[in-house]
Nucleic acid binder design. Sequence first.
DNA 1: GCGCAATGTATACACTGTCCACAAGACGGT
DNA 2: ACCGTCTTGTGGACAGTGTATACATTGCGC
Lengths: 214, 214
Amino acid sequence: MKGATDQLRSRRTYHHGDLRQALLQAGIALARDGGPDAVVLREATRRAGVVPNAAYRHFASRHALLQAVRSAALAALAVAMEKQLARLRDDGRRDDFARAGLRAIGTAYLRFARTEPGLFRTAFAVSGDPETAGSPAMAGKSGLNPFQLLGIALDRLVEAGVLPAERRPDAEYLAWSAVHGLAMLVFEGPLRRFTRSQARSIERRLLDMVEMGL
Amino acid sequence: MKGATDQLRSRRTYHHGDLRQALLQAGIALARDGGPDAVVLREATRRAGVVPNAAYRHFASRHALLQAVRSAALAALAVAMEKQLARLRDDGRRDDFARAGLRAIGTAYLRFARTEPGLFRTAFAVSGDPETAGSPAMAGKSGLNPFQLLGIALDRLVEAGVLPAERRPDAEYLAWSAVHGLAMLVFEGPLRRFTRSQARSIERRLLDMVEMGL
DNA sequence: GCGCAATGTATACACTGTCCACAAGACGGT
DNA sequence: ACCGTCTTGTGGACAGTGTATACATTGCGC
């Protein structure tokens, strides 16, 4: 029943074996239902079947653990994007394919925010530390993080002649802004009680806006 | 030096007088530098020169206090928008004026996020409780909250013939999404260390995108 | 002027992050 | 094969938090 107790029982050795991973996994579970504030050091150690202070052998602070969880959440988002991209079929028309690529990114982003609100909020919680932006810990199977995947989709738009090259620089910020803002509205703001189809409709219009306005 | 002590000294009566307001004010100050997580019940009571539990006579919980602070932050945003709107000069051309109105809303929003990051983050922190959306506590001098001000700007766009009427419904969500997303990027995300002019440029492009893509 | 409702206080509990000193075990050099 | 050292986990402690429950003080309406 209680994973914590199981894990505690199942460990008869003094050393845990892979405590860092266990703590990270527990942290992810906590973030999953409860968002960033729910990832609590003591609870994570409890679930790992270990005394609170043991965590400090692997993470300098609660904040460090949270950053690790954050990276994992971003990686999950990247994987979701890659999956959505993989479903695309190239019909030969390069411009359509490029456009579909950008939409796939946006769609995956919004779906992730809807289906994993806790992880989503954790991924984009405060802190910031933009220094760690390039870390591979937050990447998907392709080794690219969500921002980089978006950048590639935009590059393809330019290659296909859909997006004028002079508008390419910094375009990811515009696209990301729109989609991220909508995601915030969808899972917490006033759009929360919209029906599925209403939400879909707005999502489509927003992606239209981005496509037209970029 | 310490406002807390001053306030504590300055109260010689058993009753505080206007504790609710004092707590709210302290909460706003805390949110101002530190964001939502920094608005801490005990610290607020300390600054009000009162024992922790006294707060519970005016707020059911820390969360209730935070909601009040949130409303105040939204009201401040509404005031900022109204100010920006008031600076507009009508040159006779209705379409230009309507467009400028929407841009003023967006500009005020972004400026607020930049100059008052703590309040901004508090205003749009989790929780949600969309039930309280109509509360006058989060309104500006006009009695309208930020969302309503945005709605009016969009109505004007329709009246001026700039925005087709069939695209009016739910348009506030599209516009808000874009601007809000950019605000998040600006004050915490990867855009934080952009120069002022770089940020300005991106803001302008984003507002262009909204105007064209709505 | 008195009694009651409102407001502020005292004490207490469970919970958190984190520091310090110590114990248990892994592991490599002799 | 041993023994010392370095890593990892433990125990106990402290300050800080939100909040419940019981009590004190005071303003206000009759």
